[in-house]
Design a protein around this nucleic acid. Sequence first.
DNA 1: CGCGTTGATGTAACCGGTTACATCCGGCTC
DNA 2: GAGCCGGATGTAACCGGTTACATCAACGCG
Lengths: 337, 337
Amino acid sequence: MSSIREVARRSGVSVATVSRVFNAPEVVSQRTRQLVLATAAEVGYLPNESARTLATKKSHMVGLVWDTDHRRPGWRHPFFQDILVALKSALSAHGLHLLMLAPDQTPGLDDRQRFLRAVQRHSVDGVVIIDNGSRDPAVLALVDAAVPCVALDLRFTGPTCTHITSDNAGGGRLAATHLIERGHRHLATITGPPPTLPAAERLAGFRDALTEAGLPLADDDVVAGDFYLDSGYAAMQRLLARDPRPTAVFAAGDEMAVGAMKAIHEAGLRIPADIAVVGFDDIEVAALIPPGLTTVTQDKTGFGTAAAEAVMTMLHGAATPPAPTTLPTTLVVRGST
Amino acid sequence: MSSIREVARRSGVSVATVSRVFNAPEVVSQRTRQLVLATAAEVGYLPNESARTLATKKSHMVGLVWDTDHRRPGWRHPFFQDILVALKSALSAHGLHLLMLAPDQTPGLDDRQRFLRAVQRHSVDGVVIIDNGSRDPAVLALVDAAVPCVALDLRFTGPTCTHITSDNAGGGRLAATHLIERGHRHLATITGPPPTLPAAERLAGFRDALTEAGLPLADDDVVAGDFYLDSGYAAMQRLLARDPRPTAVFAAGDEMAVGAMKAIHEAGLRIPADIAVVGFDDIEVAALIPPGLTTVTQDKTGFGTAAAEAVMTMLHGAATPPAPTTLPTTLVVRGST
DNA sequence: CGCGTTGATGTAACCGGTTACATCCGGCTC
DNA sequence: GAGCCGGATGTAACCGGTTACATCAACGCG
């Protein structure tokens, strides 16, 4: 691994000149530049990122803070993979690397400091936060410390922070109007965990559309789940016990919708003849499970690319963080309605 | 961001002593150690990883090489997320970070060098390779360069390399014996793309079990897919045209199995009454799609933790890489058989 | 008492880059 | 011809750690 001094020596110039060839080629003369490039290629020189980071305090790495909630180890939003793919390739295109941070392990350390310290130790340029909605103090510490960060599916804001979310309310509204158009008058919904924002927003949109259509939404027709399959199953069982029974249900997440469908089938009812179902997310299963789940699509790739762009504008020294992005949601109609 | 010299000055010791407090606490006296730790906490000192890496040439980062095949952008094995979760948490537990490497973007660079250069620039300690089986020369270059690496689902070997695979042959065998036990005598299979190793191994195991049972496997009862859903659908259509029709089919991947099930349903046949189906992988859909897909489970978490362990033993300076690991496969019986 | 040993600490070189500032030189203007 | 300008390059300090080696005091021992 030859160093910059080696290249300088071999080509008979100073280290500063070699450095310039790679960082500001325009200021060095044509001849010298080519000479240096030739010897660099010859000896297989490549700049050492650590040294570079040490000197410039820019690491060209974006930190990924993810899965911070120990109570739910291995949290996996079904989107995660799609988002990650998009994020990674958008960053790669700009020469940025993605560092999945392990929280700082120092014993006896205040938990809130763990991510912040990992970020600072590595001189990470910016941070992307994918969290399950819990307002983890370790994550909040990042905001306070003025680290440029962009949060996904989470309404973080701050002088150095922005966020990307789906149009959850719009999606809830889409679901409601679709069901109303199909002639349903008695709707119910399975929401996400109440404290989380996506859950609240989807419900609000859904409710608004009903109100506008002059339809009621009884308290008993709103049941909370936790976004996972089993909770959808359980919630649906409660809804099936209602009298009169709702003729359509909107589940604020596809996993819960699938659970609900299972409960409906087990009760000997047909979808959509007896009960129509609309989900939210459009995960892979939605298209595969018969009769096909009508659902509100989130733009997973959009999350990734928008996050990458937001990070990059912040890195390029924008005085204020870019405005939050709201990604449009659309309805995909399948057999369940 | 206070530096080590700041801490040294404030506590009236030399920088070497401060460094020792963090790297070799046992050699510094109890009193000094506590003094230094106190001032460090007071001024919020944290060691700069870049400086440290520069000096020691160990970065405490493991590189992740993934999705190297441009012809299939966003390659996503359904396991990826599970593996990644396990890998990341196993590494985190040992204070290692995971760097998702972007290939070196230098224009005019030999493609084979792109990953190797990214690895070397960042002084990454080791590399985990998750690839789709194509023997990408950019990945092979890592092996040649003696970077410690562990490949997943890929039989890479070398003086500094090891790999983790599932017991594919055993899994194929499991599928076959299960179907035979269920009374089937005319079996067919949808394989993965022939050049890939998992495809070949699963087929071999399947075939062996048939041979041992004295059952034939006609060439026309072996159809190749590409591990994705549509190929399973198309392959199944060809199998349905056979006369006599096979009564059971083993798809070497769940996505293909789901595609096959779709083709079977569309042909007006019932599963498992008319045709039984066994898959491989045990992805989420397998349990959700009616009547439930019997499938061979791979140990996704095992991939992640085994990879982490292999990397760590190599980092701890083992002379030879750990022996390749083969993860056991098991059969999960559901409604499709 | 002199000497080797051991434990705690300090000194300073080194890792491999970046960059502010200085220097040099040829060409232009007046 | 003096003075100025600007482009190309060199010098050297600096980023923040690690570590080989030196130093020194205290101790045990013959």
